[in-house]
């Protein structure tokens, strides 16, 4: 069953069309890796799914709800679609534990102690139980991003969206974040991941989408399309990222 359905979805910023009548449906359990040149609309596509961007044409259904719905429905969609940002965006005034507990407390209305127990379990899952009382500024980039993943998971989403989660990290820190993501994928989480990590795409992805000028240019099995790019632009692109 599809959990995300794009129906001729368009997004324009003023005169600039960034998504051009995209048709795409993503099933529960898929790990979709989204690649493409800078400005091709990857982040925008991701941000339309949880309605951080408002679509300007067509429709987009997430877990049965349209992103064109009212504010309450949008909040429901966002609770089902967790997001991880390139810049982590942890709340700087809160400890790692409180960052993770924040969603369950404020969104799922758990008590503070229940929320913190959920948070503690998730910090353990991302290997950071010993950093619970650290502020984000006291953590490395890789640790911050793992806290951010835990924070998104704490609301119990059905889908996880990742926008270049390792691009702001030093090479030696990327691995710790990618392995948490791989673990999530193995547990059956539905994921949409914008990344330049082709090794991750091949190993973990179940589907690879190459975007170009706001359209889906290639959609296939990661191992097949990375080893044998079906068009020259994708071949060029892969050449650049590797």
């Amino acid at each position: 069953m599809s959990i995300i359905e794009f129906h001729k979805t368009s997004k324009a910023f003023g005169p600039l069309t960034v998504l051009d009548e995209v048709d795409l449906s993503i099933d529960a359990g898929e790990v979709v890796v989204l690649v493409g040149p800078s400005g091709s609309g990857k982040s925008t596509l991701l941000r339309c799914i949880n309605a951080l961007e408002t679509i300007t044409g067509g429709d987009l259904i997430v877990d049965g709800l349209s992103v064109k719905g009212n504010a309450r429905q949008l909040r429901e969609i966002r609770q089902e679609a967790g997001m991880v940002f390139q810049q982590f965006n942890l709340f700087p005034q809160l400890t790692a534990l409180k960052n993770v507990a924040f969603g369950p407390r404020q969104v799922r209305h758990l008590s503070q102690s229940e929320a913190e127990s959920v948070a503690r379990d998730l910090l353990k899952k991302v290997g950071l139980e010993d950093k619970a009382d650290h502020l984000p500024s006291e953590l490395s980039g890789g640790q911050q991003q793992r806290v951010a993943i835990a924070r998104a998971l704490a609301v119990k989403p059905k889908v996880m969206l990742f926008d270049e989660p390792t691009s702001a990290l030093d090479p030696e820190l990327k691995h710790e974040v990618l392995s948490v993501m791989q673990q999530l994928a193995e547990e059956g989480m539905t994921m949409v991941v914008v990344t330049h990590e082709m090794a991750f795409a091949k190993k973990v992805g179940s589907r690879l989408i190459f975007m170009e000028h706001g359209k889906i240019a290639v959609d296939g099995n990661p191992r097949d399309v990375i080893d044998n790019p079906p068009n020259d632009r994708m071949k060029d692109f892969l050449h650049h990222v590797e």
Binding site: R75, E76, Q79, G82, Q87, L90, F102, G103, V107, V155
Partner: peptide, 14 residues
């Protein structure tokens, strides 16, 4: 930064 508001909104907060 806008990123922090977005992180909050993305959790499903009003």
């Amino acid at each position: 930064g806008k990123g922090l508001s977005e992180a909050g909104l993305a959790l499903g907060l009003p």
